Structure formats: structure tokens, C-alpha cells
Simulated assay, not measured.
Amino acid sequence: MFRFANFLFQPLLSGGSAQLRVLICHDVPPNHLERFESTLKRLAKSWEFISPEDFSAMIDGRVPIVGRKLLLTFDDGFSSNRIVAESVLDSMGIKALFFIVSDFVGLTDASEIKRFIAEKIHPGLLPDRIPDSWSNMGWKDLEFLLKKGHTIGAHTRNHARLTMIEDEAKLMEEIVGSGDRLSRELGTRIDHFAYTFGDIDSFNERALEISRKRYKYVYSGLRGNNLNVKPWAIYRDAMSPNDPPNLIGAFLEGGADLIYRGKMRKYLSWGGA
């Protein structure tokens, strides 16, 4: 149903049938790994997974967007991301973009890791409710991902909700400091940034202004088709490993896009568009 509706109305809304969409993933628990792989394989039947480099070229207008293209991203830097990269993405030939919370990388004490997750990534969740499988990648894991052809992006220093930060220096450190540290530690450019939580109330005009000066590409958590978008206003569709494939497919077909158009207009107004 959503594909049929998208087929009818998308050309009127965007000037063509091409689609360029981005998926957000987070932790993939061990008991969901097989299901996650099955979901990706199902998506690959109707979508072409593209690399972050190809996505950037399409956003920049250097490469035309033809057909149905899909970029896979992972937020936060959970240790399961490396497992997915090795056991699923490698065999499928998928190159993904990993948005990393820089102060989360390298934590080694189990209680400290759980406390960080409970206080910053999943605020309100008690540390003793954090599954043991929830852990973080280290710097060696990120180096491994780069060697495998994946791309690293920044996701703030502490997974901070940027609209809650009033101090200018702290805001700069969360946005700029995260990318700069990742670049220093890994010896690579960090051109991609995704703000945390992804909703329109977790970002604002000042945070966008800082982000645009440091990064070439800024990603939201607002759903939509990235056809003729600004590189600092990229849509992304969230998915969970336990989401039914039909639900994920419905979102990718644009089933919820209209809900986010007004929010993206507000977002664009911050950048003068």
C-alpha cells in the first residue's frame, strides 16, 4: 500500500521516482542478529545499499540519484556494531556509517559503562537494568571498521541533548570536540555529524550553526526522502532489530514522511533555507 501511494505521489512531491533514504540502527542484541541479517537481505531485494562515499556524492549533486538507494547508519558506538560489521555487513558487501559518542569509546570498567549508558544514552534507565550485552566499542574497533571500508561520524562527546546546554563552550565541545577527538585518535577526516535523540526538540538554531561550520553533512532523526536536500539537513528513518520487516518497509516507502515535513521546515528555517 505504501509503495503504491509513494509511486503515485512521490513524483509530484519531488519531481521524480528516485529515492535516497538513510536507516538509523543502534545496538543489535545477540539474539536479534539473525533476524537483523534477514531484514537487511529482505530490504536488499528492493533497495540498493550504498556506501557513505556514494551517499555524499549524491547529496552533493556529483552523482545522480537513480532508483532506490539506501544508506545504513549506526548510532552511539555499541560493541555489537563491530559484530554486525564482521558477521553480516561484510558478507553482504554493505559499507555503513557509524556515528560515535567520543567519550563512550574506550571506557573499560563495566559499571562505568552501564552508568554512562543509563545516564546519557538512555536517560532514566537504571544501571542495573542495562543488559550485560550493552557495551562500547574501543578505538581498535573503530580502526577495524575503517580498515573494512566503513566510515566514522561524530555523535557528540557525551550523547548530550544539545538544547539543554546553555554554555557556549560546552556546546562547542559536544559538537566540535567530538569530531576533533575522533579525527585525532583515528587519523581520518570526520565530515559527518548526527545530533543525538534525533527529534526536532533536541536541536536548535545555534547547534545547527556550530555543526555546519565543523561538518559537511549533518543528520537528523526526521523521516524522509533525501532528494534535493541540504547536506546539513539529512533525513533518517529509525529502525529496531525487533521491528517487523513490513513496518520498516512501510516507513521507507514514505508512510510517515508527511508527519515530518513541518518539522523539517522549522529545521530549514534555522539555516536560512
Rank of each mutant, 00 (worst) to 15 (best):
I121M: 14
D141Y: 04
L97S: 05
D103N: 14
P123T: 13
H150Q: 07
F99G: 12
F99L: 06
H150I: 04
L97F: 09
W139G: 04
F116D: 05
G124C: 03
D103Y: 03
E119I: 01
E119Y: 00
T108K: 15
F99E: 13
P127N: 05
H150W: 08
I100L: 05
G149I: 08
M137H: 07
D128Q: 15
S135D: 15
G124Q: 10
A118W: 08
E143P: 03
F98K: 01
P127E: 05
T151I: 04
D128V: 06
E143W: 04
L145P: 08
P131T: 09
I113H: 01
L146C: 12
L146V: 13
E112V: 03
L126W: 00
F104P: 01
E119M: 05
D141F: 03
R129V: 03
I130R: 06
I152H: 07
L142S: 11
E119P: 00
W134Q: 13
R129S: 11
A96Y: 02
G149Q: 09
W134M: 15
G138E: 03
A118V: 06
V105E: 02
G106W: 07
S102L: 06
S111P: 00
L107F: 02
S102R: 04
G138N: 14
V105Q: 07
A96Q: 04
T151W: 09
S102F: 00
V105L: 14
L146E: 09
G138K: 07
I152Y: 13
L126D: 14
S133R: 08
M137V: 13
D103I: 03
L107N: 01
D109Y: 00
L107Y: 01
K148F: 02
R115T: 13
G149C: 10
P123H: 07
